[in-house]
């Protein structure tokens, strides 16, 4: 379980990345979503002992993240955003090296790495050099590290950014195979919806919503999203598109030529706040 109280982070250049954030995460998979610069990565880096916060407290399973980093490092795995396997090494060796960093001996690291790589579907590719692997396979190498570590807490920072839809679904399957508590950041709403038991929504260093996907979407019950290029004073504007929410039954009768009807997603919580997630 992760408990965060009044956590803030101000960088040397004055940027406030986190502003008095408090929450508790105790579900199997939690997603932290928000647009770029919302503070997701800073939060993950603080929780995984990579950087110090400016103020506030954070505890993982009762252990102080700020004061006892070495105890946290034994129980938590953190896979950074944009991490790449060392490209001149086989996938197998990349996982073994990570396990050695976590204190596993050669024999155990080899056995665990092999098993984890099979679990994520890289059984036939584990001897390939990392540069020979596709983008999805490379991300799966990191998920294999998390699985093989058998850690209590796993932080995955944007694990599928830049992957094609097929690879993303493959990585999702691999993430579901992780035994410990998973905290992942993403700006793909369907990823949060597909994987997570609860969702933390961030914007400008603050949390503005925290609940299960169903509860977060409850205000939109019975509604669909209508995207139109025509100006509409009662709609939300995102770029040159006007977005409104109408009852499912009335949608077809209300839409004009070129309008698009879509199901409501977590995106819409941001849209209603005037936040363009793609920006």
């Amino acid at each position: 379980m992760i408990e965060v109280k009044a956590l803030s982070k101000r960088y040397h250049d004055g940027t406030v990345a986190l502003n008095n954030v408090s929450f508790r995460l105790d579900k199997k998979i939690s997603a932290i979503i928000g647009r770029n610069g919302a503070g997701k990565t800073t939060l993950m880096r603080i929780l995984s002992t990579q950087i110090m916060p400016t103020s506030g407290t954070a505890r993982i399973n009762g252990i102080d993240v700020i004061g006892e980093p070495n105890r946290i490092r034994k129980m938590a795995v953190s896979i950074p955003q944009e991490a790449k396997p060392i490209d001149y090494m086989p996938a197998m060796d990349c996982v073994k090296l990570y396990l050695a960093a976590r204190g596993f001996g050669r024999k155990e690291a080899t056995a665990r790495a092999e098993k984890a790589l099979r679990t994520v579907g890289l059984g036939n590719d584990m001897r390939k050099l990392a540069y020979e692997l596709s983008g999805g396979m490379k991300r799966k190498v990191f998920v294999a590290m998390a699985i093989a570590s058998d850690a209590d807490i796993i932080f995955l920072d944007e694990p599928t950014t830049g992957l094609d839809p097929f690879s993303r679904v493959e990585v999702w399957s691999a993430i579901r195979a992780i035994k410990g508590q998973v905290i992942l950041t993403t700006h793909y709403m369907e990823e949060a919806q597909a994987l997570s038991d609860d969702v933390l929504m961030m914007e400008a260093g603050k949390i503005f919503a925290h609940n299960t996907v169903d509860r977060l979407l409850r205000p939109f019950d019975g509604l669909v999203r209508v995207e139109s290029q025509r100006r509409n004073r009662r709609a939300y504007r995102v770029g040159s598109t006007w977005i409104s929410y109408v009852k499912k039954g009335r949608a077809k009768s209300m839409v004009g030529k070129g309008d698009v009807i879509k199901p409501v997603t977590l995106d819409d919580l941001f849209i209603k706040r005037g936040v363009n997630l793609e920006s």
């Binding site: 002992t49 896979i79 960093a101 204190g103």
Partner: peptide, 8 residues
Amino acid sequence: DLIVSTRT
């Protein structure tokens, strides 16, 4: 970044 959060 990957290994800072380990016992290394």
